[in-house]
């Protein structure tokens, strides 16, 4: 039986009267690429913040890499990687300085930082850019570098919050190649996206509507369940019924 990387049971988060996350229950297996999609304001970010140990739930339970989201948030942070489109790398540090900074925070030794940093750069084919400021890198390079940095400490789970927004179609696909490789190495990938073709690349995914999980299955089964031929249509059917809107 596969190991469970993330387990949530009736996980709930309220802000005063507003139920941002409403009793969601799901689990994610080790090494799985798990998609988390939903309309703006559905509660994705709130749920992700809880799972990253940045916010405490109001009720329900969850474990991430075996650690409790109420009591063991520091252990969770040490076992995960995180990357978002909005915030990833420091523009005014060089490529290598960013790598050193993040790998240092994740607790790698100087030797590990040097070795893994160099192999990461050669894998991405940007060894000659080690001393370039991140600000002057093309967006596509930045995103790929940010992902590689987020998994430099080989975490059990990596959380990706809309990692490919605005990136060109070729780079977007190269980015997914990196995701596949990480999953092959056993890293669990938890990813949110607005691109429905990317939802198809996930092993399983959930669609979140108004704080609740309305559907959870493989892309193929979800399309069967809703009798449609694309994830776009699955999403549209579910999200159109949403009552609340917002960010």
């Amino acid at each position: 039986m596969s190991e469970i990387a993330i387990k949530a049971d009736k996980l709930t988060k309220k802000f005063d009267d507003f139920v941002a996350v409403d009793a969601i229950t799901f689990d994610v297996k080790q090494g799985e690429i798990f998609g988390f999609v939903g309309a703006n304001g559905a509660g994705k970010t709130t749920a992700m913040r809880i799972l990253c140990g940045l916010s405490k739930p109001t009720s329900g339970s969850a474990t991430v890499a075996g650690f409790d989201v109420y009591k063991e948030t520091e252990k969770i942070k040490r076992n995960i990687g995180y990357m978002s489109q909005k915030f990833s790398l420091y523009d005014d540090l060089t490529v290598m300085e960013n790598i050193t900074f993040y790998a240092g925070i994740y607790g790698l030794s100087d030797k590990e930082i040097k070795d893994r940093g160099e192999s990461l750069l050669s894998q991405l084919g940007i060894s000659h850019e080690a001393k370039t400021f991140v600000a002057s890198l093309p967006l596509g390079w930045k995103q790929k570098l940010a992902f590689s940095v987020a998994v430099i400490h080989e975490p059990k789970i990596v959380f990706l919050d809309e990692p490919t927004g605005g990136v060109d179609p070729v780079t977007r696909r190269q980015f997914w190649d990196l995701i596949y490789e990480a999953a092959d190495r056993g890293i669990t990938v938890f990813v949110t996206t607005h691109y429905m073709d990317e939802a198809e690349y996930c092993n399983r995914l959930t669609v979140m509507v108004d704080g609740k999980i309305d559907a959870l299955d493989t892309p193929t089964n979800l399309k069967k369940q809703f009798s449609v031929d694309s994830m776009d249509k699955v999403f549209y059917q579910l999200a159109r019924a949403a009552k609340r809107s917002g960010d």
């Binding site: 309309a39 703006n40 809309e162 927004g165 607005h194 429905m196 999403f235 949403a242 809107s245």
Partner: peptide
């Protein structure tokens, strides 16, 4: 429509 969900985009 950047960053806007599918329903709002339609």
């Amino acid at each position: 429509t950047t960053g806007v969900d599918v329903v709002s985009r339609v």
